[in-house]
């Protein structure tokens, strides 16, 4: 446990040792703002809520931004050979995998938390259901964890950060698209089976994110994100074990 915390601390301070963290946070906040006020028509809606104007864009925003965090996790370590240093220290592979993921997740959480002025704004302008907003923040953070675990696993496959980024975007898309309302009709017409459509859709971040962000915290949705993170971290460890020497 202590080793995990030491590793986590190094990882997390590593984000802030370079401008990368600040650039990321700025761009994240900027995009959030643009999406909320222009595409989301926050004012025009005239509703005291963050759901449609703000949280709705997170699944798409994360497609691009989360792989930008996850791409370097292992790829950089392998490229620079520091993985050899790390793995000959008295630490275990699960400790390494978990600490790297946790640091990235906390970092994403910090970026997300810094959108709090929007929350203040909506409270200033009206009387929103703050319970729903809290649930939405939790859902958004959980979803970020899912994207991150997936991206971390992909980052372990390659030494090239660009490849890690592109692959993570593509795989993330696969986990997003089935839940989009735009493809619902397409799924129904090609699969011809209600159950099959449900199964495919249940793998989408959209489906589970949507449920929690409406304020309904269903155990199934929590289990979905938790098991998604678990499975990808497990695969991450296996990939590292196989590829570390290349």
């Amino acid at each position: 446990m202590r080793s995990t915390l030491v590793l986590l601390k190094r990882e997390l301070t590593g984000y802030f040792a370079t401008p990368v963290a600040y650039v990321f946070i700025c761009i994240f906040l900027l995009l959030c703002g643009i999406l909320t006020f222009y595409l989301g028509s926050f004012y025009e809606n005239g509703q005291a809520t963050l759901g449609p104007a703000f949280f709705e864009f997170h699944p798409i925003l994360y497609i691009v931004l989360i792989p930008a965090i996850s791409m370097r996790l292992w790829a950089e370590e392998r490229k620079q050979g520091t993985i050899e240093l790390l793995m000959t220290l008295p630490v275990t592979l699960p400790q390494l995998v978990i600490s790297k993921f946790a640091a990235a997740w906390i970092f994403a959480g910090i970026a997300l938390a810094l959108t709090f002025p929007l929350w203040l704004t909506v409270n200033y302008l009206g009387d929103p259901d703050n319970g729903v907003i809290v649930a939405s923040y939790i859902a958004s953070w959980l979803m970020a964890g899912g994207y991150l675990a997936l991206g971390a696993c992909i980052s372990a496959i390659t030494k090239n950060q660009v490849i890690a980024f592109v692959l993570a975007v593509i795989v993330s898309l696969c986990f997003l698209i089935p839940g989009l309302p735009q493809v619902a009709g397409f799924l129904e017409s090609t699969l011809h089976s209600e159950t099959l459509v449900e199964v495919v859709r249940s793998f989408s971040f959209m489906t589970h994110f949507g449920a929690i962000s409406r304020g309904v915290i269903d155990l199934r949705d929590l289990i979905f994100f938790a098991s998604l993170i678990g499975v990808f971290l497990f695969m991450n460890a296996i990939v590292i074990e196989l590829k570390k020497a290349d």
Partner: peptide
């Protein structure tokens, strides 16, 4: 290790403190 790989963004101070902590 061969080529003495290190974390380029860290300072020797931070890096060695990290090693000391991870060594218990």
């Amino acid at each position: 290790p061969e080529g003495a790989p290190l974390y380029p963004d860290m300072t020797p101070e931070g890096f060695l403190a990290f090693i000391a902590e991870i060594r218990g």
